[in-house]
């Protein structure tokens, strides 16, 4: 019986393909793209200011609300944060990823990779709130800063309005630190994978042809690892754009996109505006990917 079934499927490879692909395809189309499409539709509705009801008519007036100064500021603030978090993650990740990919023994490599991913095993909320304590006025970080007599420096940095606040836990700088910490593994792993695929002989060849270490890095290693950096940056950038927990827990009361969406669809009941605001990060990511493609990030894929 089982044999017959095997033969039956063997003779009909297309049917097998269909059986395997149908569930994930359905999921992609209905659940994932479908809900995204509903979101898009909702963003073209608007809310009646007087009754608070959603009017299901095509309009662009909801999108117009995004461009009010307050909302524009939210977008700029979030995108700027995402940009710096991405750049910093990439810079921090590279040496570690390079070490893991090229120098670590297989044993050490396993341990380092476990070390990189271990934070992902515990709840993200717990980690964010732990950082709130670490960064607090009386927290462990302040303790060490005081120990080294650097509290003056910290106060000076916190006095800058754009990044500072009354303590690290209540400042954009603190939020930035937490963002980098939380998303770092998502950058390290793709960069490490990309570097793993750069044959050692290419690095040797560059050096052999007269390139000093920095030149080798700039002309061979970086361009070849660039797809990995882009892959990682898609994570760090988009995750920062959409996050609403970290801005809620750490930092000052200024809104980020995620928080705005959260409050519009929740307390305000303004689903169309929440939907329109969500389309913001989608558009930003599309633009980002187009630029990345322009820069040749996907050529080596």
């Amino acid at each position: 019986m089982l044999n017959k079934l095997s033969t039956y499927f063997y003779q009909r490879p297309r049917l097998v393909l269909l059986l395997f692909l149908a569930p994930p395809l359905l999921y992609m189309l209905v659940v994932y793209l479908g809900s995204l499409f509903l979101l898009l539709i909702n963003s073209f509705y608007y809310i009646d200011d007087f009754s608070g009801l959603i009017i299901r008519e095509f309009t662009l007036r909801t999108y117009a609300q995004i461009f009010t100064p307050a909302n524009r500021e939210i977008f700029t603030r979030t995108a700027t944060m995402a940009f710096f978090v991405t750049i910093t993650s990439a810079i921090i990740s590279f040496p570690l990823a390079y070490y893991i990919a090229k120098y670590a023994s297989p044993r050490l490599k396993t341990w380092l990779l476990i070390g990189v991913t271990i934070p992902l095993w515990s709840s993200y909320l717990v980690r964010v709130y732990s950082w709130k304590l670490i960064l607090a006025q009386e927290g462990i970080l302040s303790y060490f800063i005081n120990l080294f007599g650097l509290s003056g420096v910290l106060q000076w940095i916190l006095s800058f309005e754009s990044i500072g606040g009354s303590s690290l836990a209540l400042s954009p700088l603190g939020m930035f630190i937490v963002f980098v910490y939380i998303w770092l593994p998502y950058m390290i792993i793709p960069v490490q994978t990309a570097l793993e695929r750069v044959p050692n002989s290419l690095v040797e060849a560059a050096s052999d042809l007269g390139a000093k270490p920095l030149q080798t890095f700039r002309t061979v290693i970086l361009p070849m690892a660039f797809p990995g950096v882009i892959a990682g940056s898609i994570f760090t950038f988009s995750l920062t754009l959409g996050d609403f927990i970290i801005p809620l827990a750490v930092g000052n009361s200024k809104f980020f996109i995620g928080q705005a969406v959260y409050s519009y669809q929740g307390t305000a009941g303004n689903i169309p505006l929440a939907a329109a605001m969500t389309m913001g990060p989608v558009v930003i990511m599309i633009i980002y990917l187009l630029i990345a493609r322009r820069l040749g990030a996907f050529d080596a894929l």
């Binding site: 002989s201 040797e204 060849a205 042809l209 007269g210 390139a211 030149q215 002309t219």
Partner: peptide, 26 residues
């Protein structure tokens, strides 16, 4: 001293011309 590698070690992200010119470029 220059080397011809067993796997050739050509830079895949550069053209043939850029590969050959690499030593002069650096």
């Amino acid at each position: 001293v220059n080397t011809v590698f067993q796997d050739y070690a050509l830079f895949p992200h550069m053209t043939v011309g850029d590969n050959i010119a690499y030593g002069l470029m650096v």
